[in-house]
């Protein structure tokens, strides 16, 4: 979008068909990156199904690479949670009960 540096060290990305679900998680993961100076997102209008993610980098690094790294990191995070869940479900002793409707 408008307002980006030619070297993409600062840029706003518009993501279609996504909402706070991805926006907030992605913002958190980008902020975990020490090379990111600023990261924020907004859902500009409730009836438009888009979000806008603003990323500004230190040292003129590319915000697009940071974005891709954050997406990969989130994916490994999801994988870790998934594995932990399946292990717990298989191995842990937990209460089983019958719920009547």
């Amino acid at each position: 979008m408008k307002g980006s540096e030619p070297d993409l060290s600062a840029a706003t990305y518009q993501i279609y068909d996504e909402s706070h679900t991805i926006g907030n998680a992605l913002r958190w993961m980008l902020m975990k990156n020490p090379k990111v100076e600023f990261c924020g997102y907004s859902a500009p209008h409730p009836s438009e199904n888009t979000i806008q993610v603003r990323i500004q980098m230190y040292d003129n690094l590319s915000s697009l690479t940071a974005l891709i790294d954050a997406l990969s990191a989130l994916d490994t995070l999801c994988e870790t949670v998934d594995e932990a869940y399946k292990t717990s479900l298989k191995e842990d002793a937990y209460e089983r009960w019958v719920e009547r409707s």
């Binding site: 990191a73 292990t87 717990s88 937990y94 089983r96 019958v98």
Partner: peptide, 23 residues
């Protein structure tokens, strides 16, 4: 250093099922 660290995350992550019924 609070940057993203997968090993640290895996170490700290705990997921434990507490109760399960058919619904």
């Amino acid at each position: 250093d609070n940057s993203w660290n997968l090993e640290k995350f895996q170490e700290n992550l705990q997921l434990k099922v507490q109760r399960l019924s058919q619904r």
